[in-house]
Nucleic acid binder design. Sequence first.
DNA 1: ATATAATAGATTAAAAAAGGCCCATTAACA
DNA 2: TGTTAATGGGCCTTTTTTAATCTATTATAT
Lengths: 110, 110
Amino acid sequence: MDFYTLSDKGIEGEIGRRIKALRLRKNITQKELAEATTVSLNTIKSLESGSGKLSTVIAVLRELGALDQIDNFIPEPSISPLQLARMQGRQRERASGGRRKHRAEDDAEW
Amino acid sequence: MDFYTLSDKGIEGEIGRRIKALRLRKNITQKELAEATTVSLNTIKSLESGSGKLSTVIAVLRELGALDQIDNFIPEPSISPLQLARMQGRQRERASGGRRKHRAEDDAEW
DNA sequence: ATATAATAGATTAAAAAAGGCCCATTAACA
DNA sequence: TGTTAATGGGCCTTTTTTAATCTATTATAT
């Protein structure tokens, strides 16, 4: 599935559908899920239709036993040897290049 | 990394840190990211500290070129042959068992 | 070493989500 | 087939997020 072909709204909807599918696979009702996560039934409904807070997603995924997926979601970005060399081993804390007239094309170089 | 050992707040923080790391890896400032996603600078700050809406996460991940990760995040749940048989091929649309006195232990059977 | 851009934090108002409640529809049970 | 629990949608109030702006700190380029 290529999410880049979808609009933001489209992606939200797809995520909602998948969460619902996860819940149904465990045969849990929205009400049960709401009670288990201590969020309201309304919030579960909204989430399954695509809108909600990040914290809600996390609470629900925990209850559905799908928390480990988050690791793939936003993986710990690894540092390229090239960058590591350029920065003498230190981690960059701020984006930079601001004082340049024309910012160099972002080097996505690896 | 085992997210189940973290609290919800802890996970939110970790996600924020990873998004920030993704941004820094591309050497983009918060301001630039805000303009590119048409969300405010404030919202980017908040997101990187762990709070925000699902829609904000999506917009930011799109801009950072990490949208494809969502597929792993909440994978399309596959149906087990067992369940498929029980339901005569139809997809379940509602959780059930509600009319039972004591709900059977959720069969996570595959 | 200095200058400055990047970032964190705080405040106020507007927008959206969350929470609680009610009503209508219908999938799934018996 | 009849019953009813599960779900969706609306409405209202409370809480949280977003947005805009300002101040303070400090990493980074020169």
